[in-house]
Write a protein that binds this DNA or RNA. Structure first.
Lengths: 220, 220
DNA sequence: GTTGAAGCTGAGCGGGCGCTTAGTGGACGG
DNA sequence: CCGTCCACTAAGCGCCCGCTCAGCTTCAAC
């Protein structure tokens, strides 16, 4: 799982962004976009948060949109990696689905700032960038659907509509980025556990499986 | 657009907006906000869609924000009314929850244009308007939680965390406005039925209740 | 010590924004 | 047939946007 670098609730997919000034601008843009939305954010605001003059932005990025594009791609790649890691684990479909949902939700809750931009500012991208990101989304969808399909094939799950259920599971996880509040009553871990349980119910996972004691959902 | 009918999901709420020109402007604003987002929409665009000059907007509304405020309040009141109607029905908690989720989702899918603005442009409101809308949201939340609590109390549902489950159920329904596509494979009715089934699973509704034959979920 | 590249700034351009204002035209009471 | 009203328009104001560019500093290479 993620190490103790969760400073400020955001995992850091930005560690690999170089040079240093470009990364500071990217992080500033993530914060600004998450707070106010892409269109309401000014390049002056982004540069200011990064402690630079407005013109400095254009040394590292061609346009404001390129910032969003880069954030979106890195974020989607990270999300996809999280789901792939869970999907490739050993174990029954129920365990893998619970793991996938749990870690996906923890990422959306803990890195809400990033996730919000990644999941909700897609429409602000131009057609080309948008198409590229949508391709990544289709891979995300495929990853979750594969687990559900395997569960159904193995007789572990009871699902009427695999496509629709996949959509609903992903929708549930993604929307965490909209409502989750760091100062609210839940920790990212609690939401992850709760959602893993809810999703297992949605797919009709047989409660009397080989591994009965699943990751405990918090009583409340 | 407004092709006469438009499933009835979208058209209705604005019928009571009184001066005809004010209603046309409001409908134009809903469409523009849904397509591009509040901040990316210009007053010139709204007025143009309504077939008027930019200045005409300010005869009926003080600011661009007042348009969003009015749209948001009317939309939230409509959503609340839908849930209250379902919640006050006779029948067991499972039937009422299925009805509430079904109609709520049908509204979000059929009136996606409106719902998108209502559910996702909240942050663009100023503090006062925002607070007013948040009060309506709390009532929406209370309505769903009440049904779930009754189901738990009656032994119909098996829920570990009522608060969290309520949050998840609402989140699931609301997010329909984000992904639903009129040209996609599902009709609003199908999504409503699918989601009603999924939510009953989430709350652990006993399948062998007194009214076994629930509204049929679409096979696919 | 000079040079050139790289990173950054201060000033500012063209343009589109939300919103205002003076004036128009059509409906209507007298 | 006039006068009043008022929804609406044409024109435009002041502002701030995304973005540019000449010039400054720094620093490694020679």
């Amino acid at each position: 799982m993620s190490t103790a670098e969760e400073t400020g609730g955001d995992a850091q997919p930005w560690g690999e962004v170089t040079p240093d000034a470009a990364r500071r601008l990217l992080v500033a843009a993530v914060e600004a976009f998450a707070e106010r939305g892409y269109h309401a954010t000014t390049t002056r605001d982004i540069a200011g948060r990064a402690g630079m003059s407005p013109a400095a932005l254009y040394i590292h990025y061609k346009t404001k949109e390129e910032l969003l594009h880069r954030i979106s791609r890195i974020g989607h790649e990270k999300a996809l990696e999280i789901l792939r890691t869970a999907g490739r684990r050993e174990g029954c479909a129920a365990d893998r689905l619970a793991d996938a949902v749990g870690s996906f939700v923890r990422w959306h809750a803990g890195g809400r700032t990033t996730a919000r931009v990644v999941q909700y500012e897609l429409d602000s991208l131009g057609p080309d960038a948008r198409a590229e990101i949508l391709a990544l989304r289709r891979q995300v969808d495929a990853e979750v659907r594969a687990i559900i399909e395997e569960g159904v094939a193995a007789g572990e799950f009871e699902v009427l509509d695999v496509h629709g259920t996949t959509l609903a599971v992903l929708s549930l996880c993604i929307d965490v980025a909209r409502w989750f509040n760091v100062d609210g009553p839940y920790t990212p871990e609690e939401v992850g556990a709760l959602y893993a349980d809810l999703v297992l119910r949605m797919v009709g996972a047989k409660p009397a499986g080989p591994a009965q004691e699943r990751s405990g959902a918090a009583h409340r």
